[in-house]
């Protein structure tokens, strides 16, 4: 078994028009910049993939990463909890012009919907959003005297995530709070593509330290010294 891809380009080569793409990261922490930019490059050369649905906590910042996907015109819909950032112009302009769809999901519900998809649970009940605009049209049920909102699983065709270490069997560890949504997204997508800062042989990650087991990972590409979104933003970099 070898899940290694030869390049970031090869790792994202089969993402298709209309795909639902989960992208790991919370702001810049855990954002797989190199995978995203490989996708943007492919679009610039071939016009594909387009009409993507992108699932992330946020909706891009500045002009790199998810914001670069938005500026390139590749995204038809964002599913996120917080489409604001220090520089949210890419998303805000599209949204106010009616050129992009937004599904706003409370952060914990977003995480749990992704987890549920990965765990094969089609729906669940949560107290979050009961009685608010976000719950409109969703089934409500009472458990032990309290109201809960039914939420459905959230699946994807592809997940793009960033790990610290990967072994050749796809076992992953993450760097500090960069893990955020990535272990959940790895479970919820048909194909999970990982950029890892270092790839090691199977057996070199202590099984006790594995955060994402390899069963959830399809493809790995090593990206040494990956770019960090927050650092790029501060440097004013444009993709």
């Amino acid at each position: 078994m070898n899940k290694l891809s030869s390049s970031v380009e090869a790792a994202v080569a089969d993402i298709a028009d209309g795909d639902v793409v989960m992208i790991g990261g919370f702001g810049g922490a855990g954002a797989p910049i190199e995978l995203i930019h490989a996708l943007v490059e492919r679009f610039r050369k071939t016009g594909s993939p387009k009409n993507l649905t992108v699932i992330n906590n946020n909706a891009g910042n500045g002009a790199i990463g998810i914001a670069a996907l938005l500026y390139a015109g590749m995204v038809a819909k964002m599913v996120c909890s917080f489409p604001r950032s220090t520089d949210p112009k890419a998303f805000t302009d599209l949204y106010l012009a009616g050129k992009i769809e937004l599904e706003l999901v409370p952060q914990g519900t977003l995480a749990e919907r992704i987890r549920a998809a990965g765990a094969g649970i089609p729906a669940f009940y949560t107290p979050s959003s009961y009685g608010t605009l976000v719950a409109e049209g969703k089934p409500i049920a009472e458990f032990d005297g309290k109201h809960y909102v039914q939420e459905r699983w959230l699946k994807a065709d592809v997940a793009l995530i960033k790990a610290e270490l990967a072994d050749t069997k796809g076992n992953l560890t993450y760097h500090m709070a960069a893990r955020n949504f990535s272990p959940l997204m790895a479970m919820a997508a048909k194909v999970t593509v990982v950029q890892a800062s270092k790839v090691v042989e199977a057996g070199e990650i202590n099984p006790e330290h594995v955060v994402t087991p390899g069963i959830f990972v399809n493809r790995i590409v090593e990206v040494q010294n990956p770019q960090q979104e927050e650092v790029l933003l501060r440097e004013g970099v444009v993709a």
Partner: peptide, 26 residues
């Protein structure tokens, strides 16, 4: 910048800190 809070500000860790994914967090 992989060590940030929900406001995306850089933070530090106290002894005994832990990391977990978003579903555990919520």
């Amino acid at each position: 910048w992989d060590l940030i809070n929900a406001g995306k500000k850089a933070v530090t860790l106290n002894p005994g800190a832990s990391f977990f994914h978003h579903a555990d967090s919520f």
